[in-house]
Design a binder for these strands. Structure first.
Lengths: 149, 149
DNA sequence: CGAAATCGTAACTAATTAAGTTACATGAAA
DNA sequence: TTTCATGTAACTTAATTAGTTACGATTTCG
């Protein structure tokens, strides 16, 4: 799993889980989907469990299941549960008392607040169901073209 | 200079330059503003020079000047010149041929394109002049309160 | 009950990235 | 021609994150 791909890797995993709603998938299986190992998977999606997006169960036959219907799981929620920051730049003061810095941070934070609100709104309108639908469309297309050839 | 603070550090530097439009500031001086060293400054703002946002001159009396009026320098341009990415998540394929991954990346890239456009528009409406105005407002306020006390 | 399967998590290692530093060549001004 | 500056390469250090190992806790199955 590459750096900064926690969101896309997690979505990948979740689509697989959505495609097998009745069947718990183990960390081991999920790990192979995103070419990493089980511990990284558990660590990465631990926050999703806390948010109720997925559930996990231990022991024989255990593993991971979606916590609710894909229609009710938005990308905004997933991103938040991963602790992903939408905007990457820092506005931590480094020279307390410097008025120039204060002005810069004030303007940048205003922008950040507005931008994060905007992005969160956009992301809350995309659900896991949209992703599975896109996947199935692609899957059907491949099926058709295979027949055609 | 902390991680991820390249944008705010650069803005800090640029406001100082805007406040001394006739006087070239050296990398050394700029470095002290943001608590780093001259080489880091040169490296960081090299892209701004290429974009015409600042100019640099060597030798005695040399240093850095704004390339144009603060009103004509937008945060969008500055961010672009720094090579800063607005959205931090990666959508590099890691499993070429996997339809699930393709669906995830497609949706995520659609979002990214729309989001980046939106953010760039917002940032293009904020100029360096807005920052210097904010700084001066703060400066005047301190002056007033100093008198009052 | 005991064995096997599975998650939860701590602790450590490795890889990656970005900042910091040193060094020196280039160019401009006094 | 000396001094002051940038430009840039090369190296070192620090911080972050992924990967790994290990093991305890929990659950199911025989």
């Amino acid at each position: 799993m590459k750096r900064n791909s926690r969101l896309s890797s997690t979505l990948h995993i979740l689509v697989h889980m959505a495609e097998k709603p009745e069947h718990a998938l183990t960390s081991e299986q999920l790990a192979t989907f995103i070419h990493t190992n089980p511990v990284v998977v558990r660590r990465t999606i631990a926050g999703l469990r806390d948010a109720g997006i997925v559930t996990s169960s231990r022991g024989h036959g255990g593993g991971w299941l979606l916590g609710r219907a894909p229609e009710n799981i938005s990308l905004a929620e997933i991103g938040a549960a991963l602790g992903e920051t939408l905007l990457p730049f820092s506005t931590e003061p480094e020279s307390p008392g410097c008025l120039v810095e204060q002005a810069v941070i004030a303007v940048l934070d205003d922008f950040r607040i507005a931008a994060e609100k905007l992005l969160a709104e956009k992301l809350s309108r995309i659900t896991l169901a949209d992703l599975t639908a896109d996947f199935r469309r692609r899957y059907d297309l491949i099926g058709v073209s295979s027949h055609a050839v």
